[in-house]
Design a protein around this nucleic acid. Sequence first.
DNA 1: ACTGCCGGTTTTTTT
DNA 2: AACCGGCAGT
Length: 792
Amino acid sequence: MELLDDSDDMGGVPLSQRAMAARPAPYLDGLNPAQRAAVETLDGPVLMLAGAGTGKTRALTTRIAHLLMLGKARPGQILAVTFTNKAAREMKNRIARLLGETVEGMPWLGTFHSISVKILRRHAELIGNGELHLKPSFTILDTDDQIRLLKQLIQAENLDEKRWPARQLAGLIDGWKNRCLTPANLPKGEMASFDGWGGKLYKAYQDRLLTLNAVDFGDLLMHCVTLFQAHPDVLGGWQDRFRYILVDEYQDTNVAQYMWLRLLAQAHRNICCVGDDDQSIYGWRGAEVGNILRFEQDFPGAQVVRLEQNYRSTPQILAAASGLIAANQGRLGKTLWTDAEAGEPVRLIGHWDSEAEARWIGEEIEAFHGGHRASVGRTSLNDIAILVRASHQMRAFEDRFMSIGLPYRVIGGPRFYERQEIRDAMAYFRLAVSPADDLAFERIANTPKRGLGEKGLQAIQSMARARKISLLEGTVAALTAGDLSGKAAANMRQFAESMGRWHADTLDDRVNHVELAERILDESGYTAMWQADKSPDAPGRLDNLKELVKALEEFENLQGFLEHVALVMDRDDGDAAEQVSIMTLHAAKGLEFPVVFLPGWEDGLFPSQRAMDENGTKGLEEERRLAYVGITRAERLATISFAGNRRLYGQWQSSMPSRFVDELPPEHVEVLTPPGLYGGGYGAAMAFAAGGPVSALHERAAKADVYNSPGWKRMQARASERKAPVHRAPIIIDAEPAAKFTVGDRVTHAKFGEGTVMGIAEDTLTVQFAAGFKNIKAAYVQPIGGDDDVPF
DNA sequence: ACTGCCGGTTTTTTT
DNA sequence: AACCGGCAGT
């Protein structure tokens, strides 16, 4: 194959020559014996079992550097796969640092998905169903597009969308793709899923994707595998190219990824998989812990290297985490050790409710930040993280931190590229780049309003279907045929003409793509739509659009940008000022922080009820691994907490401490006294609920196992019978609160802090807070600033 | 064709 | 509590 002639394969200086001149590899200095073995065992299959904080990334990157320095491979001949873009970026940086200046990029260091796209683009025409095939310019659909498409297909079968939810079907299809099950080889049982429609709709979906020249996320892997299986010559080309394969987070690979790797590695078997079975937390999206447990059978003669020296956490933290994870069955097993100072035990504390928990953690953070914790010293906010099980838990912290003015950042929160205005703008760009992108067309044909309704759209669709042309072309045809009515006709004519012009511009090198993007948004009327919108969040959306256009500057053209967004979908957070990090436990994998808070350890939330219901013991063990991941993120201090009451779906609900709390080894845990014990309040309420005086509770708490005791659980159960905590009830001064506000008033909200009223509808206010615009019931905000009717 | 109201649903985790 | 989709009124 001519694959090897591609320019990206030639990156870099001939490193082998440098290696000759180099002194005994300085980059190997400081590696421990296990790491060194992992780096120097280059040929044949290697399984690197790397516990949390054992220098896995260092070993991996040094191994790559070593391969290059010894001249075993050129940068383009090393395939290094990660799961996240962040991990890939990190590895690139570290390799560059190891080798110094001139390392040309590693073209094949990336996520499974981004590498798969690169491969598929070169063989797109080989992917098809006999009639249709992909073109190299195929687009990648995100979840949103996927759902919309499935909805259409469900409608086309005249099925009730309530009984056959598109989301659920999307989940099924994802699951199949994770296991490399095409419509053709879908097992009978699966075929009948989704009330009998599963197989049929799956087939229809795949066909539809082909006609759209599109793929979804799952396809990226699955198509690669089927491509390799059906075309040995193609596979052979890639096998020859990738002389060494490295895989990060191997415990998270699913069946499709496993097959993908196997096919590529089976010829030379130079594959090094790095992972930790105790950190497998993605079973729900198809990851198979079995892949790592089975490695030695899959690759006979594999060398296993264990990295067990931990460089991250104190012995206390490690011991607590190890004690917890020991409850899991079927582990490969390893013993983490460290020669660090003992450090502080893991702290454990219970709170009355989630708001008290957030309040307490806020105070703790302020104390650390102010240097009032001698044991840890003054702590930068950047060194503190709050790791939650489910994203809805973040709200309590955001609310609290907002009102006390504690800077925080949410990692992996609502994403920039998932916002409506950004997706609309992207649809314009997509359509300009590929006029046949019907999904993009549907999204924006009537945005801004062009008077195109359901009937108009149907006319266009039937025209397009009849002539086997795209919707954009169908629009022109429908116009010619006079199928569209007055206003819609005029507008759509202009839309189609403009789009034609923009498309021509995307092909014209002389047209600057950033200016073109701006022009598209302006001429289409999209910008004007938001300018005319007087809803209070319109200005923010316009800002986002500006940011989007600015982001374009870093790319060569619109095509390149669209590609990036489809796969990368993450934004470089501004480093800026000190901020506490709030994120899910899943998002925290691979990260580390000196001080870590682990709130919400309540049965049902963590471990999640759903995980246990749906996957039984397996689910519970995965939750336990998640807990293990959480604790092992901490370098110096971990604090676990739970709350007796928490709001769920707007309802207060009580819960018991997590069973994981019981599993922590008591000798490495310090139980803190719940706050408020001396000042009355809910602390006292808890004590009374427990049936004893405050001091008795205090004493029992000091015994370190109070939260294990049946007494504590009884207390929790009984306390929860009470009504929602009164202390959080809004203070309503008037009978008719809404009447008091006018637009422009300054108000304060218990959760969002200060803000300005931007709109009023009945008793609901739209208020601009530092956090953004929120619709809030008037009863929950208080007027501030020169107001005379506040009685204190 | 568009707007505004009502009722059901949501919250596990994501490339 | 907040969001979304479906429905009815203009």
